[in-house]
Design a protein around this nucleic acid. Structure first.
Ligand SMILES: [Zn+2]
Ligand SMILES: [Zn+2]
Ligand SMILES: [Zn+2]
Ligand SMILES: [Zn+2]
Lengths: 157, 157
DNA sequence: CTTCATATTGATAATCAATATCATGTATAA
DNA sequence: TTATACATGATATTGATTATCAATATGAAG
């Protein structure tokens, strides 16, 4: 058990430092709930909604409230530790941002499977669009939708 | 006044036919509120939310209720007359889809100005991503964010 | 260690977009 | 016209998120 906790702490070190720096710079305080939310978020290696994150947080510390999870995930976003995108079906979803290179998403409209990809040609073409209209780039959201190989197979069967 | 109404009717002819065909094929009925919502939607040449559309509809016919506007804009989407995308700040927004070629959006994060563009290189690169992962394309959403020329100038001043 | 100003918390109420419900009104075909 | 199924507007409801607020915890200063 202690080993696991130690391993977690090792993995967390940088992210924790990023959060602490952000808090210090904004006269905010490090608290137990905020650490719990950060740890839980970092332990989930996929896209999560605030609700899903709350469930996970609640499992390891039932005293943490929903509101705090919503507040903290926004904080993580501002601190550069999380990235968010609005999901077409309602709830906003979040993913890791620190030490996770920019990527776009390819989602199966049938089963929801998500492929994360990065494509140089797309990025370069986007840069040229920015230049064409004289805009200064500050980010973008690209989601490709389609039918994944296994759902295509099922549909043919 | 009559002239304007006639002009509107001319512009509407095709779109109205598209909706009528869709309604007939689905055993649905053409009604006054549905026509009003369609006319109003087509008269607005920019992205609108259901709420904004309701306000415009209400101006020309106060008897039409909000629920009907929500229902009808979804209907227009299904009929291929409207396209929607979820806006980062909350409400879903809609734009014309009939006889409006696919395009992507470049939005100023400062003033909200939107440039609609279409870029062959981006579309081709996306097609190659679909092939790479064996997905069958069914659509995509791309929004570039940045600072428009005039906001860049203001920022420098 | 104690003080103390200030930030944070969890519970709850409130907001916002979007849907569901339902009694009443209306389109359309026979 | 008459029947039938669909559509409507008002209203209640949902679901995600945010605001409010009294009680608590943090962290810097003394
Ligand atoms: Zn699939
Ligand atoms: Zn991702
Ligand atoms: Zn601008
Ligand atoms: Zn557009």
């Amino acid at each position: 058990m202690i080993l696991i906790i130690n391993m977690k702490n090792m993995d967390l070190r940088d992210e924790l430092a990023v959060l602490e720096d952000y808090l210090r710079d904004h006269d905010l305080k490090m608290t137990k709930p905020r650490q719990t939310v950060l740890e839980t978020f970092l332990a989930i290696e996929k896209h999560v909604t605030a609700e899903e994150l709350y469930n996970a947080v609640h499992a390891s510390d039932p005293s943490v409230g929903q509101a705090t999870v919503f507040r903290t995930i926004r904080l993580l976003e501002e601190a550069g530790l999380a990235r968010s995108a609005c999901r077409d079906d309602g709830a906003r979803s979040y993913e890791h941002a620190y030490r996770h290179a920019h990527h776009d998403h390819l989602r199966c409209v049938e089963c929801g499977a998500i492929v994360e990809f990065s494509d140089g040609a797309i990025e370069r073409a986007q840069a040229s669009v920015y230049r064409r209209f004289g805009y200064e780039p500050s980010g973008h959201h690209l989601e490709l939708e389609g039918l994944c190989p296994s759902c295509r197979a099922k549909k043919r069967a």
